[in-house]
Design a binder for these strands. Structure first.
Lengths: 212, 212
DNA sequence: GCCTTTAATGACCGAAGAGTCATTAAAGGC
DNA sequence: GCCTTTAATGACTCTTCGGTCATTAAAGGC
């Protein structure tokens, strides 16, 4: 063994973040049950024993991973609360921001985890619903309701309109996460968002004749 | 033990179907790795050993379960190939049929499985892409392209338009499968389909002014 | 009613992997 | 430089669960 290279270093502050990051990668790839703590430890550059200095159990670590990914989604509510911006502009801003967020936060992988493990970890599904999905959908619905009052868009259940707006983005994310890795053609999310924006905004516009 | 009640019965023909059904339930609830063969056997009303008379391994059984759910999706292509029906009518028929299919085939549960296990069973993701998703999307895209040529809808990439049509349905299914069981308000899929049909058909209509 | 065939059982085995802990060594105070 | 503290190790245990197989008994032919 080299003299100058210590077997390991003590870095109590840096560890938790690194571990969660490594765990995220492994959980995202394998799912909860098939993920091995040895793998996570190896990827984090430590031993399995060290994991237990920072997390009580495997479940604990999993919860930390999924909860970690919750945080950064709150700012979209403020955008949607803006009341001076015309609705279509607002919507394009929100859609564009979604696109960026998906790119940088690996939101697709988290979605896969939450969806796939929702029966085994119902409390995580609940957290994600309450903190992320329901909030975003609520803010969007509110914005839609206001736009209806102002006559900017057609009347209708705002909650269902929100599905029409968000659904295709979710589908795009799932496509990329599920089918592109097994050989399906890649999907340009920016393009999808832009094209879908055209379609759905036209669809929500007042007086646009319904076909037939 | 009762005299008249045999310990078990020999029913070689009926077993495979029952096993796959039971396995579907357990896999859908737990995911592949967390599903226990003992549980599947118990639910099928047989012993674990008997499973191995019909399936080589756990993976084998899982593959059978996911492949089983592939079959019934082919008829939508014929509907979409109809060339005499006006596009909006065609679309409403397709959407309605999707709704029925989701109700009767537990499509949501399968989707969850395919999405969640796509990294561990890439060949299943591939099968599902090739046999179901890509085909349905392809047929829909073709119908959209034809409708564009006829001037029934606005010009644009048909593939992306297909995402705008299908995305909200997928989102609805995932919602029901993931969030409703943990306390989120139930979603009326029929209603979503109808409302989304209004929106997206208006959005695809030619000359409908894009807002702003 | 016996005999053959084979569906079905369930106790068992072995591997895998979550979680533990006695031991080691880095860091830092004095 | 020594000593204390504590981060980190990795060999170990123990449980769980996929898969096996010798044994049992249902079904059906003769």
């Amino acid at each position: 063994m080299q003299a100058g290279s210590p077997k390991w270093r003590r870095r109590a502050e840096a560890r938790p973040g690194e571990i969660v990051q490594a765990a995220f990668d492994v959980f995202a790839e394998k799912g909860f049950a098939a993920a091995k703590l040895d793998d996570i430890a190896a990827r984090a550059g430590i031993s399995k024993g060290a994991l237990y200095l920072y997390f009580e159990t495997k479940e604990d670590l999993f919860r930390a991973v999924v909860r970690e990914a919750v945080v950064p989604n709150l700012d979209m509510e403020q955008v949607l609360a803006q009341t001076t911006v015309p609705f279509p502009d607002l919507m394009r801003i929100v859609l564009a921001r979604m696109g960026q967020m998906i790119g940088k936060t690996r939101l697709g992988a988290v979605a896969k985890l939450v969806i796939g493990e929702s029966r085994n970890f119902p409390e995580l599904a609940r957290v994600w619903h309450d903190e992320v999905v329901s909030r975003a959908l609520g803010a969007l619905s509110t914005a839609l309701a206001k736009a209806q009052v102002r006559g900017e868009i057609r009347l209708g259940d705002p909650r269902l309109q929100a599905f029409s707006i968000m659904g295709p983005i979710l589908m795009g994310v799932i496509w990329q996460e599920t089918f592109t890795p097994v050989g399906a053609p890649a999907l340009d999310l920016e393009l999808l968002i832009s094209a879908h924006g055209d379609t759905v905004l036209a669809g929500l516009a007042p007086r646009a004749g319904v076909l037939k």
